[in-house]
Computed example of a mutant assay.
Amino acid sequence: MKSIDNLKITILSDNFVSTLIPPLIGEWGFSALVEADDVKILYDVGNSGYPLIYNSEKLGIKLEDIDFIVLSHGHSDHTGGFSNNDVVTKLKGKMLIAHPSVFEKKVLNWSGKLEYIGMPLTRDETEKKFNLILSSEPLEISNGVMFSGEVKRYGYNEYTSGLYTSSNSSLLKDSMKDDVALYINTKKGLVILTGCGHSGILNIITHAKEVTNQNVYAALGGFHLLSSPKEHVEKVADELTKNLQKIGPAHCSGNMIKSIISENKEKWLDVSVGKSISF
């Protein structure tokens, strides 16, 4: 796997906004623009799509110029932007890469109340609007940029509590096989970008090493630790700090791990709306 010379990741949608100039907006969800040398990848499209449109315009980013769309998984806070006509219009005809399970009917059991949290588009609708590629295996999108495919579990925690799929009028536990990351090989080592990290960030890091044979330099994005007990968050934070040079918890990671990691200023990355992070 070749390394790229320049990598910049710009956060277009997240729960937190880092800057007031220009004035940007946030919402629950995630979307990031990955610029790897001269290839542009939109990773997720956010929840409503409105911050994606608004923030990209304020930052001078033309969504029409991206080369690929990658979906981290099928939950609506990462795919709901496709319910926004402006998003679809700007991205129509692009190559869209995701795991085959991304179109499953996904349901959340939140305190005994069932809620649909899946893709706003069916597979047929998606294929009419985009050039769809579905893969459960790792796929090198461009030189130095790999779609992780299905993340192997190595015994570390994964985060699937309360998540189900609806099939034939029955609910099945969702093992989140569609939870995928990007592995980007830089001169400093691998940079991992996650959406929610349902597979478990420690599983994702181990998988990245296995499929690329590279050391991991940084991980950023959602780590899904917001509901985890303090002892577990501290353990994960310790593993990340020992093994990575840069760490950027975002979206569903929770404030606890942000607080812990931010104490180590040399390793901390502020991953919130408006931030552009270069490697």
Rank of each mutant, 00 (worst) to 15 (best):
D179S: 11
V180E: 00
I260D: 03
P138A: 14
E150Y: 08
C252G: 13
P249F: 00
A208F: 07
L240Y: 01
I205G: 02
S259W: 15
H251Y: 08
T194F: 04
K258G: 14
A250H: 01
G195T: 12
T165N: 07
I257W: 02
I201F: 03
S175D: 14
E210L: 08
L171D: 04
K152N: 07
S136W: 05
K235E: 15
I184P: 02
V191D: 03
L139C: 07
H198S: 04
S169Q: 10
D179M: 09
G155W: 07
L190M: 09
Y183P: 04
T165G: 06
L193Q: 06
K177Y: 08
P138R: 14
A237I: 01
M256A: 10
H232A: 05
L182C: 08
L202R: 03
S199G: 12
G200P: 04
I184L: 04
V236W: 00
S148R: 14
V236S: 01
D238G: 11
S199D: 02
G149N: 14
V191F: 04
I261R: 00
K246N: 10
K230C: 07
H224L: 15
I201Y: 02
S161L: 05
C196T: 15
H232Y: 11
N168G: 06
T212N: 04
S135F: 12
V233H: 00
I260V: 13
K265M: 12
L225V: 07
I184F: 05
I205P: 01
Y156I: 10
K230P: 03
K152R: 08
G197L: 03
G254F: 04
L171K: 09
L220K: 01
A218D: 02
Y217E: 04
P249S: 03
V180L: 07
L163D: 12
N143S: 14
V216P: 01
T160C: 09
L202P: 02
I204F: 02
S166R: 12
I201P: 00
V145R: 13
S227C: 09
T206I: 06
A237Q: 01
S227I: 09
T165K: 11
N203H: 08
L220H: 00
N215Q: 15
A219E: 00
D238I: 06
K177D: 11
H207I: 05
T241P: 01
L182K: 06
I247F: 02
V236I: 15
H224K: 13
V233N: 01
T206G: 06
T160I: 14
P138W: 09
N264F: 13
K177S: 11
K258H: 05
P229E: 03
F223R: 01
T241H: 05
K230D: 14
T206A: 14
I260F: 02
G155F: 06
C196K: 11
K235V: 05
G144W: 04
K187T: 08
V211S: 05
S175W: 13
H232R: 10
A219I: 04
Q214C: 12
K173P: 09
V211K: 12
M176E: 07
N215I: 10
N203Q: 10
L225W: 01
P229K: 11
G222D: 00
Y159L: 09
Y217T: 02
I261E: 02
V191C: 06
